[in-house]
Design a protein around this nucleic acid. Structure first.
Lengths: 220, 220
DNA sequence: AGAATTAATGACTGGATAGTCAGTCAGCGA
DNA sequence: TCGCTGACTGACTATCCAGTCATTAATTCT
């Protein structure tokens, strides 16, 4: 119940004044609650309480519930995409190795930043917030797809990969990653992986690269 | 706006009495709205209006909003899982062909019954409705996984498939299918497949069976 | 036809909550 | 030490909506 939103607990006095720290703490609290309960079912009193302030304070920093939702989506994601693109740009390995490193990096973003929780939130609320959804599409989804696309096209051009349909392949590659983070952020028993994510990712890569069939067999 | 919930438009009088047809029409309307807006954001007035009745009528057939939600989940899914299991039991083809037919059947279920919309709904609301979520897990997810498991184990036993980690493979196979139906039920531009689902499924299968690598290459 | 039955209605209520604002008090500078 | 500023508070309001029920009318029975 009396959970402090984020890390640094400074003055901790009953009515401490910490103008700098409030927005981030409120965003962190809002991310958790929006993610757990959805936008409509999340009470602003609860968000404020989790961040250790009153609802009035929340309104000092965000104009409305919707503005808070916007800020949550926009404030959490961009830095990690930037970093991923930089990482890939300076990557010298094989296409298969690039793929592996991107997927692992993606997983780490999700543990650190709750980016996965955000994906679940967007899936759930896309219909109610078309603007937030298209912001997310353009800034996260498109850029992420573009990274995978470059790896695949490079791999195919160099003869490392078979010439598969790139756009569909992107989805086939990303979908298990998305489901992994979605189930890790949704308490649905009997769904989600029963093995550690790193192992899950390496099995995914193994199947992706080598296929399921014994060599020689073909589908009719 | 003045959309009739489901197919058969019978008497159509202003205040027609159709005790038999109401529940199904209300469920259909509720499925669409819960799916589009989420549980909390869906108004019962709106559900009733979409089914062409007043809110009072809705309460003649369902005790509460939550009971309606339960009925939506429970009423939509079981028959299709039954049918899929029957189909698989009498399937004589190769494991690869069984896999293909199951995925295609799954896709058809989703177009016909909006089962995919239901998956999106469960992902979004699992945290708020643990009982509904575990009902869904036990009756849909577990049985679905069991079908894939049987196909994979059979394929591996007969030497048709490589001996991959079955549990993780199940997820890698199903995840792209889930994402396919989720994006088909969530109006997120720039997500989802840009090719027809049948083609998407066959590309998924091709990559799944044959892998991405040119034969001979291996990941370090 | 008239009575009895019951599906359907929609105005109403009670509880909940997004958003407001007059007041309080922590921290700082004089 | 004192008084000022503004970050913070929480009671308050206006609204929204799940759930109710007295009334209306479609259908069936006699």
């Amino acid at each position: 119940m009396t959970d402090e939103g984020s890390g640094t607990a400074l003055p901790a006095g009953k009515r401490a004044r910490r103008k700098e720290a409030r927005p981030a703490e409120l965003l962190a609290a809002a991310l958790v609650l929006f993610t757990e309960k959805g936008f409509a079912a999340t009470r602003l009193d609860e968000v404020a309480a989790r961040a250790g302030v009153s609802k009035g304070t929340l309104y000092l920093y965000f104009d409305s519930k919707e503005a808070l939702f916007n800020a949550v989506v926009r404030g959490i994601v961009l830095p990690s995409v930037d970093k991923a693109e930089a990482m890939l740009a300076s990557h010298a390995g094989s296409a298969a190795q690039q793929l592996k490193d991107i997927l692992i990096y993606w997983w780490h973003c999700n543990s650190d930043l709750r980016l996965g929780a955000l994906h679940k939130l967007i899936i759930a609320e896309a219909g109610n917030f078309p603007e937030v959804a298209s912001y997310f599409s353009e800034n996260i989804v498109l850029r992420g797809r573009q990274m995978i696309r470059r790896v695949l096209e490079g791999g195919i051009a160099r003869g490392e990969f078979r010439p598969v349909a790139v756009e569909a392949a992107i989805e086939v590659i990303m979908a298990p990653m998305l489901m992994l983070v979605v189930w890790n952020n949704a308490p649905l028993r009997a769904c989600g992986s029963h093995c550690p994510p790193e192992q899950y990712i390496s099995i995914h890569l193994d199947m992706l690269l080598n296929g399921l069939l014994q060599t020689g067999t073909t589908l009719s």
